[in-house]
Design a protein around this nucleic acid. Structure first.
Lengths: 240, 240
DNA sequence: AGCATATCCGGGGTTTACCCCAGCCAATTG
DNA sequence: CAATTGGCTGGGGTAAACCCCGGATATGCT
């Protein structure tokens, strides 16, 4: 049995027919259309292989994978993503058990690539989309990989917070925030004020731009963070 | 005859079979897979209806539409887009002739919606995706609609440029730039420093965040702008 | 003509973001 | 055990980003 989860009807039927054509002997194909549903179905049906779309209502593919793997660590997971966002590769890395089997394919992959990935995962190998390999390389690179401290700061400035607001939120000094930002800028390769006169940048905005471009952050992730921020503020307001 | 243009093979075949099932009497369906090709084919074949994906290599769907409509203003165009980005609606508005016929459908539309849109456009009506109507409302709203001046400034800060760099690039004073930014912030509803103490924002980054959220700008548009910027700098460097 | 709007420009101010430098502490690593 | 690295703290500075104000120009609408 193979379980597939995607909120888009079109992608679901595309994948289903593709799997039916190539993996008919792996039993029936079950469908879920959001993150919560796929978790429920997975725990009940215990399928050996699950396709998960990253962007789904209620529960993202990553979080769904986390919950499923917590109960059934031997489940093979193939993630489907629209973009080569570094955030997701980052998050997936934490969720998948060290020797777990998983695949990561972009939605613009060819049918052949999806079949190839499925075949690989079913026989116990990992398959990662060509475009992503580069990203993973960077994820493991010491010099450019962001620490969680830097990542937190990055998200905050992307949301438009001031140093002062960030400090208050993360329980830090403004100096500490600036320290984080400084190393962030360095890792992103943004020139400072002193060096190079023709490339004048507002490092703050430039950092947001480059990070978005590289897929370190993206809008839907930021929306999540902003929602959390809002909740925290509401809680603080109601307690006073 | 119907001409469809999309760089993704999957979307192309999906649309083709959908049209074949529902509009068989409209003649054969021709396919193009990038912006330049669809312009060439359109000028040669003069199809009454063209489907255009917005995101295509070489030439965006909008620009392709512009070139086609310049020669064949009576062509009906249906745009296909992944997002409800305001930028695109904005640009499409300028390109389509006042009484031209066009449709705008998002790629997550149901098959029924696409059929409906096609039917409408073929009979001379415009069809706009439900989610977009709201965006168009805003595009025409005086109070929140950005002027081109403000939009230019917005793009520049999103790219991470300083006031000084923007001024140099747009041949303005720094004061003029700040003036543009000030009205931009006002239209985006970003509070200034004086008012409201618990909402402390770096207006610059906040503007970028909100604009991206609302679809006023997006990454691929910014990448285009940055490429232009780079060209201008190269030209300046080689002339000195 | 009168009015509104958008845009640009100027002076003169405050606050914030970034800069350099140095030191401390904790955890990791050879 | 050193040695290194990542992170926080501090002092003291410069320049960029934002603030309020008034004034000039052009454009379009009634």
């Amino acid at each position: 049995m193979i379980l597939i989860a995607d909120d888009e009807e079109r992608d679901r039927s595309w994948l289903k027919s593709l799997l039916n054509d190539n993996f008919a002997d792996n039993g029936p194909i079950e469908e879920a259309h959001d993150g919560q549903q796929v978790v429920d179905m997975a725990l009940k049906l215990k399928p050996p292989l699950i396709f998960l779309d990253i962007k789904m209502p209620h529960l993202s593919g990553i979080k769904a994978a986390e919950q499923i793997l917590a109960q059934l660590p031997n489940t093979a997971i193939i993630m489907l993503s629209n973009f080569s966002d570094e955030v997701y590769v980052r998050q997936l890395w934490k969720v998948v058990p060290p020797n777990g089997v998983f695949g990561y394919v972009l939605k613009n992959a060819s049918n052949e690539q999806v079949v190839e990935a499925t075949r690989a995962v079913l026989s116990g190998d990992c398959w990662i989309h060509p475009g992503i390999a580069r990203v993973i390389q960077r994820t493991q690179n010491r010099a450019t990989n962001l620490t969680t401290a830097e990542y937190e700061a990055l998200v905050c400035i992307a949301l438009g917070m001031t140093d002062h607001a960030i400090a208050k939120r993360l329980y830090l000094t403004e100096k500490a925030v600036q320290s984080r930002l400084k190393s962030l800028y360095a890792k992103l390769g943004i020139p400072g004020r002193g060096e190079s006169h023709d490339t004048e940048f507002n490092q703050r905005c430039r950092a947001v731009f480059l990070s978005t471009k590289r897929g370190l952050i993206n809008q839907s992730e930021l929306d999540d963070w902003e929602a959390k921020l809002q909740q925290a503020q509401d809680a603080r307001a109601s307690s006073t």
